[in-house]
Amino acid sequence: MSALLQVRGLSRHYGQRVGCEDVSFDLHPGELLCIVGESGSGKSTLLNTVAAQLAPSSGSVRYRQRSGGWLELSALSEADRRRLAREEWGFVTQNPRDGLRLNVSAGANVAERLMALGMRNYSQLRHIARGWLERVEIDPARIDDAPTSFSGGMQQRLQIARTLVTQPRLVFMDEPTAGLDVSVQARILDLLRRLVNELGLAAVMVTHDLAVARLLAARTIVMQGGRVVETGLTDQILDDPQHPYTQLLVSSVLTT
């Protein structure tokens, strides 16, 4: 099966400082890939560079279009990049407040991407928005409530609904559970696992938590100091970590 995303020798530097260095991987349709590392390991830089929100210093990111043709992301115009982000991709931020429009209702937040794609039937928008609120376990009766009246966990679930409502081909997630209580985290991870399976999503998720990768990802990349130190099937990495840093990470997961 042909990959959806092909990353080759990708580096991003900030002046003299290395953000990420010489990263390569493929992402296949329907696959959820986790990038694991501690803070400062370059995983968020990698995510943002892959998602074309940061320009790479060198290397290549290619995205396969519906037509089968490949797009080199660094060569995209701002217009095409925004079109992709609007029509084919989704991005879930760590802090839901960055990804939500806080001054409009939950329903408007879910409906916005649909309207951006040209849907102009109000009743239909409401119907879909209610459906998605239900799917992310928010009472549909709260469709006209402001996101600011929601708890942190609800806001994150709302952001997930807002992102997935257009059924994107590819979703980027930056630590979507990091700012939340453990019990709330579990609920969201459970929800994500269900949605990923139902929708057959392809996704790249950044997390500092190997336990999150174990729950969601078939494959995992482990990063340290901007470089990939280990990559493979998540189970394999957990059962038989090769790199000392991965071994350290795994032992900390297993002991907790």
Partner: peptide
């Protein structure tokens, strides 16, 4: 009906 007046802010 059934969903009015929960105080979402307007533009």
């Amino acid at each position: 009906q059934g969903e009015a007046g929960r105080g979402s802010p307007a533009l």
